[in-house]
Design a protein around this nucleic acid. Sequence first.
RNA 1: CGGGGUAUAGCUCAGCCUGGUAGAGCGCUUGCUUUGGGAGCAAGAAGUCGGGAGUUCGAAUCUCUCUGCCCCGACCA
Length: 449
Amino acid sequence: MRLSRYFLPVLKETPKEAEIVSHQLMLRAGLIRQESSGIYAWLPLGLRVLKKVNQIIREEQDRTGALELLMPTIQSAELWRESGRYEAYGKEMLRIADRHDREMLFGPTNEEMVTSIFRTHAKSYRDLPLNLYHIQWKFRDEVRPRFGVMRSREFLMKDAYSFDLDKAAARHSYNKMFVSYLRTFARLGLKSIPMQADTGPIGGDLSHEFIILADTGESEVFCHKDYLDFTPPPITTNFDDVAGLQATVDRWTSLYAATSEKHDAAAYDAIATDKRVSARGIEVGHIFYFGTKYSDPMKAQVQGPDGKPVTVHMGSYGIGPSRVVAGIIEASHDKDGIVWPVTVAPFEAAVVNLKVGDPDTDKVCAEMVGKLEAAGIDVLYDDRDERAGAKFATMDLIGIPYQLIVGPKGVKSGEAEIKVRRGGDRRTRPLDTVADEVIVLVTQARKLA
RNA sequence: CGGGGUAUAGCUCAGCCUGGUAGAGCGCUUGCUUUGGGAGCAAGAAGUCGGGAGUUCGAAUCUCUCUGCCCCGACCA
């Protein structure tokens, strides 16, 4: 992608409405634009990041056997009356009427709809277990949206819903998502810690919030320090291994970790002083087992092996990709801008032409871009007629992980420079191998996830 | 929903108190000079001063009202 032809409205100054660093940087780097309180447009660069986050989530969901579908944003009030939540949800639900004055709503979540889909089409215990998920825009009319896309009214959510014959099977479905989330957040470059959490109005008795530590987080959290050094489950994880998954979940819940709502001061005080972490955190995922809370009133049943109807056990599992983007920035930035993990970077590498119009430099840059693109790398080519300083500043602000800097002096001496965004390391390399080295760096960084 | 603030060019803001017909920096356009960490000089484009009503010879400025946005609190899978 040539930057001179791209739409990248970066800002030198920080817009005054932005309080936290992720919001400031998302505006400055041209990722988003506010359209209304708690409602944002995703600009081209921001959308690239959002799509990469979605893709990682999707791959890890699919790995567990979950199936993607897509439910609508607009739902009928009828469905919500069945579960009793139409009244219970309160003013946070955006209620609308269509031309026939039928009561509709912009979905804040999809338990009712997915349950309705399930009960219509799944009739036998042989259809279980089943996990259906989608990545769709939600709307919750928050009293006070803030912090950009961190707490917005319209936001993207991956929500998965599991259906099982009994509690034991549901527990395994829960564990699949638990382990999947650990892998997902690790691939997104985040250190997530599963914490005991309130189940809230959604109900149920088994629930974990996945928290990343950040000073600007909205939740107060307490946990054992060792969690920060835990290794995420490997790609070879067998999601059908019931005992194996349970062992992983047990390990990740063996030490103390809780949000303030579930905080047990006595248990926390039992931790060695130097192992206590009392911090603020951002909730990036939340998983629930809630049994028959919806399947019961909505009569989601299948026929069991004995021919008798069984009400299915359900769980729901959410990740907010739009919030995750902000969370990644909170966890990974410096004074110059965003430091994207390669896995979610809008472009994995950039070629920076320091003298656009100089035939030799232009030619070398074109070769570099061609080599990187041929290797399947997302490349941003800065071919703008700007000064070097402005180009460096832009690349750092938008956080491109690997920057291949080509200037006329280097071209003459047969060299170019590689700059690594994280840490700022720079190295000069011969022109004939420099692109290959960037390819290796990007490829390795992808694998680390 | 309570409390507080704010609204002037794309962005950050000054001007308002004490009414006299619109400003700066950055960004944008053009030209020249520059060219390895957000360059310099010159010329230029750009604003219904959030909307409405009122006071006044005259309103960005004073009054009333509505709206948007932000902050604190309560709220929040």
